[in-house]
Amino acid sequence: MSASFNRFLAGVAVLTFSVFARATDLTIHLSGSEPISRHMMKYRCDAQGSKMGLPAEVFSVEYINGAGNSLAIVPVSGHSLIFANVVSGSGARYAAGGFIWWDAGGRGVTFSSDSIDGNITSECHRAE
């Protein structure tokens, strides 16, 4: 076989692998003896949420807490975004890029984003 044909086959193999290898696993090593807790909650948001990239149907958010960290993994525009807990006057407020996921306890959950059009907000509720 010619060298150019071998490069062509190698390129096809790389492209095929990249198309089928969509999921990515992540391992984070944290120091300390505090146990790590993980739990899933299901949510449904209003129509504004789907315009902002949240799933239109019921979706799951994974919460990971431990070793001084509080994270929420939220599906936005087909990606799993990792939100980190930030200072909040009440409830649990998480940020990722220009997005905020805020579980304000009895007041419900809001998903918001600052954009060129201003602050856009969606109201979300726990689903069973």
Rank of each mutant, 00 (worst) to 15 (best):
V109F: 12
F20L: 15
M52W: 01
R44K: 10
S70G: 08
I120E: 15
V58Q: 10
S80G: 03
S2M: 07
G97T: 00
T110P: 03
T110G: 06
A84F: 04
H39S: 11
I36P: 03
N6G: 02
A127L: 06
S115V: 01
G89F: 08
G91P: 02
M41A: 13
S33A: 09
L30T: 02
G66P: 01
H79K: 13
D25R: 10
S88E: 09
G78S: 05
A104K: 13
A13V: 10
G11M: 13
M1G: 11
G89Y: 08
Y43T: 00
M41T: 00
A67V: 01
F5G: 01
R38Q: 09
L26A: 06
F8Q: 15
S90E: 15
E57H: 04
D103T: 03
I120T: 11
E34P: 00
S4F: 08
N119Q: 14
T121N: 05
I116E: 15
F83H: 02
A127R: 00
E62I: 04
M1H: 02
T24H: 08
V12K: 08
G49V: 07
N119T: 10
S50R: 15
R107T: 08
K51T: 06
A3Y: 05
R93K: 15
E57F: 00
D103K: 01
M1S: 11
A127K: 00
A104S: 09
S90M: 13
I116Y: 04
F111A: 06
E34L: 08
R93E: 13
I28M: 12
V109N: 06
T110R: 12
M1R: 07
G32I: 03
G106K: 07
S88M: 07
R7F: 08
F59A: 04
S70R: 06
V19D: 02
C45D: 09
P75A: 09
S2Y: 02
V12C: 14
V87C: 04
R38H: 07
R38S: 13
T24I: 11
Q48S: 10
S2A: 14
R38V: 10
G108K: 04
S70L: 11
I100Y: 01
E123A: 10
I116G: 08
S4W: 07
T27M: 12
S33I: 12
W102Q: 01
T24N: 11
A96V: 06
